[in-house]
Amino acid sequence: MASSFQRRGIPVASFVEDVPTFLQQYNSDPSTALTALQEKLQQYKIAEMKLLGQKRDLQSKIPDMKKCLQIVGTLLAKRGSGEVMKMDFEVAEGIYSQAQFEDTNSVCLWLGANVMLEYTCEEAMELLTKNLDTANTSLAAMVEDLYFLRDQITTTEVTIARVFNWDVHQRRKQRSLKVDESS
């Protein structure tokens, strides 16, 4: 039997063992049951869309985080070598200016909300790595949630088809009974 285990507030679509027994909750009226199931399906789909959006947002942030790590990594690698690095910075769209980089031990990280904080390279590296890890962990959790949601959607879809088939079957039986009576 399907457990009523919840995940992120998503209720489980319980598996229907037997259609007639299931229909008793709806006074054995298949169309009421179908409407209720359709409603549930829609809710699952809305939840899936929301979650997919969140996943896309997060996925688009990960490359940016990697870029930051790359830069800090470069600074760390060159530190102490006394080598002057030349970089081209984009000052406006399509316009680049050259800058020389001497040994540096700190970078400023944009924390958001118009706040920038200066970190040593090691601290920055640590912070950025931690952020990337967190992002990857929540991405993995989201993927799991999406799989779970997909299961609920599939279960509901199958239930709808079964109720519908049962109904058609029932009607056919009734029809053939009537034909028998009239003949």
Partner: peptide, 25 residues
């Protein structure tokens, strides 16, 4: 995964449902 609404009644067990879900995943 699509169980066709063709009026054919086939019994679906919990195991079948799990297989169908897995296929969807």
């Amino acid at each position: 995964v699509e169980i066709l609404g063709d009026g054919v009644e086939t019994e679906v067990t919990w195991e079948d449902q799990q297989n169908i879900n897995l296929f969807g995943r």
